[in-house]
Design a protein around this nucleic acid. Structure first.
Lengths: 339, 339
DNA sequence: CTGAAAGCGCTAACAG
DNA sequence: CTGTTAGCGCTTTCAG
């Protein structure tokens, strides 16, 4: 199967050496060849349908021109935009992305990492929130270039691109306060995720500043099911104790919707709900979700830019890029109703 | 950066030839080496942290162990499950997927295809519905192995894996008829997409069989916006002409929701709506969407299986695999209300 | 400006 | 059972 046309074929047809063909076809070296020859060689290559063999080239140049992108699960709607953002800058620079899913499983991640290394990826974009510190260390020890996205970077040797979660949580709480809410629950994601920790901390800090009465409940994973379960449990134990919940992400918030409904309550009349991420279609939920919008596509693009610059030799240092987020007010939040 | 340990390093450390190391490390050839040597070599490879170089191997074996997956847009929620399905079987067989997005742009697709060829992918999984016949021909002429997924295969030299769209549309219409609907609109996707055509035809056939009064309107793309626009236009021109709409997919159906709301009408009280795909979170829409559920993950997995079998030399022939779909009844459909 | 030659890391005959 | 020898297709000195 596939392309049998090699440099040698083109060389023979053009009556020149393979090195001349190579130089003619590569824009960085075509200056070393007479314009005339370049033109002729290119024409012949075209006619013959020559396609460079990336593996052969990579073997020689020690570059694969591919970037590994590690996500927990592509099925989680925040990742496709990130991946597409990554892709948008990679593609324009001749790179390709190889996306892998860890399903939040350390063993899987380990195997996937090895697989990416075997494929000689030139760098990594890591979007798994819970990556073990040790895993990151392993990457770094092996001299792997990487950038983290949607993940806190503290104490880690790689640059990272994140949304301004703290400010997002703050505006969520301020919005609720304006609506008259004073007793607010935070349904947090698991503490193993850096984003969960950041949002939790921001919640606590802002609530204190605003003088609110708060509760924090942790969900076991960032999923609708976990959110629903945790919220059901909370409502069972503390009915009518809160008037609003700020969820760790939209999936959790959706779980909260379900739990609220299961308890015969309504959103937002009985309990207001705010999500995080503004994932696709959150405007179409029932009710349309008030949520903090993070620029996922741009985060991916920025991460890719950072990585490429690192690959080109620019020492990065553990830089941290924070992109602004905005609260999108829809219909899952409303004023506190008097009883 | 990266792994400097090569076969030669391991060979030297073990006091054997590189070929012995190669044979020892590869499960298919380890039988050619004494068990003792295998054990020793593997141990040393392990200690040295040897990682095979896929590019070197691929150059030699003429296999990249990577599969190109061509989708229109990863951001469309039906594709992540397909990709994960593909991945699930690829991974277990040592292959990796390289996913690219065409954005339904022929020029982009062309460039992406070239890029995949340069990367020496061993095969293609094509999930773009509108791929030009000529593009497919190009693939085939180049001896590229491929399987199509979620796309009709007629007249095309590749096997394909699709959902049983016709039966899905039929059950949708039967469901509506049971609810008393007689005047039904089909909001179809663009005719350039094979799935749109199949569903359209099925709609017409079934409606005739059921003796229904129908209309068909075409949206320009499979998007919420296009669906909304087309439906708005229809409602402007023909208010109260229909009591239900069967949309070409969930995105279109969502657009229909919006248009219905914009016209001050309600779903399902004024107009019932049925989508297609049962995309993630369609149960959380407002209202929860009645839709035809297609087994996307399994479709991807099956496509990967077919492709791998083809790569292993099993002549495929233009086979077509149809997976069953099921109507999921939720709250966007209801009985016709008397005026 | 162009050719010759070497070699990236690996596997696959071919010998022994 | 193991070593020798090529060579996959390409880029890159090094000569000229």
């Amino acid at each position: 199967m596939r392309n049998r046309v090699t440099l040698a074929d083109v060389a023979k047809a053009a009556g020149v050496n393979t090195s001349t063909v190579s130089r003619s076809l590569n824009s960085e070296t075509e200056g070393q060849v007479s314009a005339e020859t370049v033109k002729r060689v290119r024409k012949i290559a075209q006619e013959l349908g020559y396609t460079p063999n990336t593996m052969a080239r990579g073997l020689r140049t020690r570059k694969s021109m591919t970037i590994g992108v590690i996500v927990p699960d592509l099925t989680n709607p925040i990742f496709p935009p990130i991946v597409r953002g990554v892709d948008s800058v990679l593609q324009s620079r001749g790179y390709s992305a190889m996306v892998v899913n860890t399903d939040n499983n350390a063993a899987v991640e380990d195997a996937l990492f090895d697989s990416l290394m075997e494929r000689q990826v030139d760098g990594l974009i890591i979007a798994t929130g819970h990556t073990e510190r040790s895993m990151i260390a392993k990457y770094h020890n092996q001299g792997v270039k990487a950038v983290m996205v949607n993940r806190e970077a503290s104490g880690v040797p790689y640059p990272s691109v994140i949304g301004d979660d703290a400010s997002g949580i703050a505006s969520a709480l301020e919005h609720l306060v304006k609506l008259g809410h004073k007793k607010i629950l935070h349904l947090s994601g698991p503490a193993t995720l850096s984003t969960s920790r950041v949002r939790s901390t921001a919640f606590t800090d802002t609530a204190k500043r605003l003088g609110l009465t708060t509760k924090i409940v942790k969900a076991t994973t960032l999923s609708v099911e976990a959110g629903q379960m945790a919220m059901n449990k909370f409502l069972d134990a503390h009915p009518k104790e809160i008037t609003a919940v700020v969820a760790g992400n939209d999936l959790l918030a959706l779980g909260v919707y379900h739990a609220i409904r299961q308890h015969g309550l309504r959103t937002p009349q009985d309990i207001s709900v705010i999500g995080f991420n503004n994932m696709p279609f959150s405007e179409d939920f029932q009710p349309p979700m008030t949520t903090v919008s993070a620029p996922h596509f741009e985060m991916g693009a920025e991460a890719a830019r950072l990585l490429l610059s690192q690959i080109q030799g620019n020492e990065p240092g553990p830089r941290k890029i924070t992109l602004p987020v905005t609260l999108v007010v829809r219909e899952s939040t409303g004023p506190v109703l008097k009883k």
